[in-house]
């Protein structure tokens, strides 16, 4: 291709202009990334919340999960595998509910704990079934099994991701960038494997134990909305006032059939 000189000059000029335009854009230098001022709880006045989660009605019979499709899983599981989506003991105590402060801490920025939270895959099962951590806190995912697993974090607010983990693979390290109640986790390979991760922007959360109890400590006195999430029974909340240096009870009841 041959160009007329004049046309070529115009082209060169145009391309030079094209090169020039970018650097002239103003560079934003406002310092918005200064270190956040963390809120520190005054231990002398801090209070706590404790309570029990109850399930009324007929106690659901523990559901047996068939994992026989993978014999290695059966061997690794050591015993029968029972569904953990609705765990109620003989006294009606409800386990695996996620309790957290929903409202009342606005404007306070909490330091991210340096401790890590571990989600293990063991016996073709996510352990624990429900777990909480703060935004930016390190989640460590391990595979203790002799089989390949797959961690599929089906987040809606955070980024959804999916990662394969072979036997003996190094632990995965992940973080969440936004609060999300809850992030379901599943294994694309073993469809019975489920876990839920509560991601909060404050350190005040707990998972109800097998006896239905929970405790949230080191809270600044104040009025809060306490939220509860349960994978089968849904969400509840109540307003609660925490007085200095005292434990405030908060119980929740889910109606069963």
């Amino acid at each position: 291709m041959r160009l007329k000189p004049s046309f070529a000059l115009v082209l060169i000029a145009a391309s030079l202009a094209g090169c020039k335009s970018k650097p002239t854009e103003p560079v934003v230098t406002t310092e918005t990334s200064s270190a956040p001022v963390f809120y520190h709880v005054d231990a002398a006045t801090a209070g706590s919340i404790s309570g029990t989660l109850k399930y009324t009605g007929k106690r659901p019979t523990p559901k047996l999960i068939d994992i026989s499709q993978d014999p290695t899983c059966v061997k690794a599981h050591k015993g029968k595998a029972y569904d953990e989506s609705l765990v109620v003991d003989s006294k009606g105590d409800l386990a695996n509910a996620f309790v957290y402060i929903r409202k009342g801490l606005e404007g306070k920025v909490f330091e991210v704990p340096t401790t890590t939270v571990t989600l293990d895959q063991s016996g073709c099962w996510f352990r624990p079934h429900v777990v909480g951590l703060m935004v930016g806190q390190q989640l460590i995912i391990t595979n203790s099994d002799p089989v390949t697993h797959n961690i599929h974090s089906v987040a809606q607010i955070n980024r959804e991701w999916n990662h394969s983990m072979g036997p003996g693979d190094a632990p995965l390290q992940r973080k969440f960038t936004k609060p999300e109640i809850m992030v379901p986790v599943k294994c694309n390979i073993h469809d019975w494997m489920h876990s839920f991760i509560g991601v909060t922007d404050n350190p005040y959360f707990a998972v109800s134990k097998d006896d239905g109890t929970f405790k949230i400590e080191n809270l600044p006195p104040g009025t809060y909305t306490l939220g509860v999430w349960h994978e089968k029974l849904g969400v509840q909340e109540q307003t609660i006032s925490v007085s200095p240096k005292s434990d405030t009870p908060a119980n929740f009841t889910y109606k069963g059939e």
């Binding site: 390949t148 797959n150 959804e160 991701w161 999916n162 394969s164 072979g166 036997p167 694309n188 390979i189």
Partner: peptide, 19 residues
């Protein structure tokens, strides 16, 4: 060379890889 067996390779794909 990170996957040792064919069963584990098939499992890798069954999990739909790594996002």
């Amino acid at each position: 060379g990170s996957i040792r067996t064919l069963a584990a390779v098939v499992d890798f794909y069954a999990g739909q890889g790594n996002s």
